Amino acid sequence: MPVSLHHIVIDAHDLSGLARFWAEALGWRILSEREREVVIGADQTAPVGICFMPVSDRKAVKNRLHLDLTAPAEEREAEIERLLALGARRADVGQSGDESWTVLADPEGNEFCVVRPKTDLVQ
């Protein structure tokens, strides 16, 4: 049997604050909170969670790995506005303006995208 994805790990300065942002953004909850690790997930039995680990250096360049989020097409703009209200900001990573996705950054500057639903990809 091959290995399976367990956690996506995000380095953070404010573990609890960033974990709360992502938990609220995804509709997840904090599953475990320790001094040097905070884990969020849909629930305790979810196959994948996000783990926040402390780091001392500041983020300096564009992420080499990022998360893509999606919402139903008719709710996409409202979800982007909700994420911005939670503390995200719009990010410029060199996009042309013609993309079908919107690039945002979380409160610590980690880029992520809000993309169209997979069902829209076949059209």
Rank of each mutant, 00 (worst) to 15 (best):
I50W: 03
K62C: 14
D43H: 13
P72V: 02
G87W: 01
C51I: 07
G49H: 06
L69I: 03
R90L: 04
P72R: 05
E77H: 09
K62E: 14
K62V: 14
H66Y: 06
C51L: 14
I40F: 08
A73N: 02
R64Q: 15
D57P: 03
G87S: 02
N63I: 05
D43P: 02
A60W: 00
H66R: 08
I40M: 10
V55E: 09
A73W: 04
A85N: 12
E75I: 01
P72T: 03
F52K: 07
R64T: 15
R64W: 06
V38A: 13
E74L: 09
T45R: 14
E81G: 07
A73I: 07
C51Y: 04
T70C: 09
E77T: 15
A60C: 08
R58F: 01
L86K: 00
R76N: 09
L84S: 04
K62A: 15
V38T: 13
R90M: 05
C51V: 12
E75S: 10
Q44A: 15
L65R: 11
P54L: 11
A60Y: 02
T45S: 15
I50Q: 13
V39M: 08
G87P: 02
V48T: 14
P47Q: 12
L84Y: 01
A88Y: 00
A88H: 00
R82W: 00
A88R: 00
E81V: 12
V48D: 06
A46Y: 07
V38E: 05
A88K: 00
A91F: 06
L86P: 02
R82N: 02
K59V: 12
A78I: 05
V55P: 03
S56V: 12
V39K: 12
R64G: 15
R82I: 01
R58D: 05
A78D: 11
E75M: 10
L69D: 04
E74T: 10
R58E: 05
A46F: 03
E74N: 04
I80Q: 08
G41R: 02
L67T: 10
S56N: 07
L67H: 03
